[in-house]
Amino acid sequence: MARESKKKRPSRLIALSSANKTFEFRNPLEKSIKYQGKQVEVKLREDPDGFSYIVWKNKKYMLDVIEKNQNRYTVMINGVWYSFSVETPISLKRRRYLETQGNTSARVSIEAPMPGKIIDIMVEVGSEVKEGESIIILEAMKMQNEIASHVTGTVQSVSVKKNETVMKDDVMIEILRA
């Protein structure tokens, strides 16, 4: 009975990569991929010891969903991760439309790339920073890491203090893009 209902569902899904590449699959559950004009069957297996893998062109690729948040996926394949948002044809259209509406924010936040302790903050509110300039020193795993700004602009807010510990993705500094 369940089998029957599956067929009725619109099943075309698109994975949109962070570099804006799209990968379209007619029905992923049918485990076949359109490749160079042909439908190619993929073998998707789960080992009894807990690894999932795809056999593709006679090679095994180990796969794992390492992060999932609604339709946002990060998938690890052979140790390399890729991020996608999974879209339907309609949601993709809507997304593309919204992107044309110019919501590019001028405010950029610098987030902690890893959990750690703030050793030093080299900027304060109002400081001008250049792209690539070190703004924070974060200690994690016994190494002091220089965190650089990835934009040029003016510091709007500093939300961390020296000697404070931060978690991954905590916003440390906000910069108004020049």
Binding site: L13, S17, F23, P28, K31, I33, L63, W81, V86
Partner: peptide, 20 residues
């Protein structure tokens, strides 16, 4: 890091598969 040509596509497939 090294990635092979079809890896991204296979990862994309796996994401849509899991979603579906």
């Amino acid at each position: 890091y090294h990635h092979e040509p079809d890896e991204e596509m296979l990862a994309a497939f796996f994401a849509t598969y899991d979603y579906a």
